[in-house]
């Protein structure tokens, strides 16, 4: 009984299949070459609209920093600033920063007593710069046996302007830093940077090196 039903179904299916095949062939022969080509070129298939889901993308990093800056010939004083970075790939990022510090007196000013080379407002050292950074030596640091944090050592360099002693100077900065990721959005930085520009403030024109060492707290958004 079972065999007979199976045979019945199979033969019907085979017949239908043959029928489809033969009608298909017949149709194909009916179509002219030109028409077929047209069909191949313009298949009228409704395109499915693919929209990329919206994720919380966190490629920007914003932070405040504070530390020390050594202004050549003018001693070391506190420095602080603001930075915004865009992470384009897992290793490359662009950074814009604005920072400020204040020059102390030169040793000549201190020894001579009354002489002042700069006014108070000219002592303000303000810079902004645009830099590109590259993360090298990614790693992990361990705190006790229980906590592990990701870290990155990066090289960075760029160009910018420094306003000091009443003038704006074209400034090149190079440096390196260390980024410690506390969790997936909060980071701590240690950053050492040399801000170099030409200055003729003390007579002869020379390239001044202004080293800055800062620590910062920043977060991804």
């Amino acid at each position: 009984m079972e065999n007979r039903t199976r045979f019945l179904f199979l033969s019907t299916a085979a017949l239908l299949g043959l029928f489809n095949l033969s009608t298909g062939q017949a149709e194909e022969q009916l179509l002219g070459e030109n028409l077929r080509e047209e069909l191949l070129v313009e298949p009228e298939i409704a395109r499915r609209e693919i929209t990329e889901p919206n994720f919380d993308e966190e490629d920007f990093e914003i932070g405040v920093y504070a530390g020390l800056m050594n202004i050549e010939d003018f001693g070391t004083s506190a420095a602080y600033g603001l930075r915004l970075a865009y992470h384009g790939t897992e290793s490359i990022f662009l950074e814009a920063a604005i920072g400020t510090s204040e020059a102390n007196e030169t040793s000549y000013e201190q020894l001579s007593g009354d002489v002042q080379l700069l006014t108070d407002s000219e002592r303000r050292f303000t810079y902004y710069n645009l830099s590109a950074g590259y993360n090298i030596l990614p790693g992990e640091v361990f705190l006790g046996g229980k906590y592990a944090y990701n870290s990155q050592f990066y090289l960075i360099g760029g160009i910018g302007t420094t306003r000091f002693a009443g003038d704006d100077e074209f400034t090149v900065n190079v440096g390196a830093g260390y980024r410690l990721l506390i969790n997936d959005w909060l980071t701590i930085h240690l950053d050492a940077r040399d801000h170099m520009f030409e200055s003729d403030l003390l007579g002869e024109s020379k390239t001044t090196h202004n080293f800055e060492l800062t620590g910062s707290l920043s977060f991804f958004f």
């Binding site: 994720f55 993308e57 966190e58 490629d59 384009g88 897992e90 997936d184």
Partner: peptide
């Protein structure tokens, strides 16, 4: 569950 994306990586 996908929490966030950073460059070409997903948390």
């Amino acid at each position: 569950v996908i929490h966030k994306r950073r460059t070409d990586w997903f948390l």
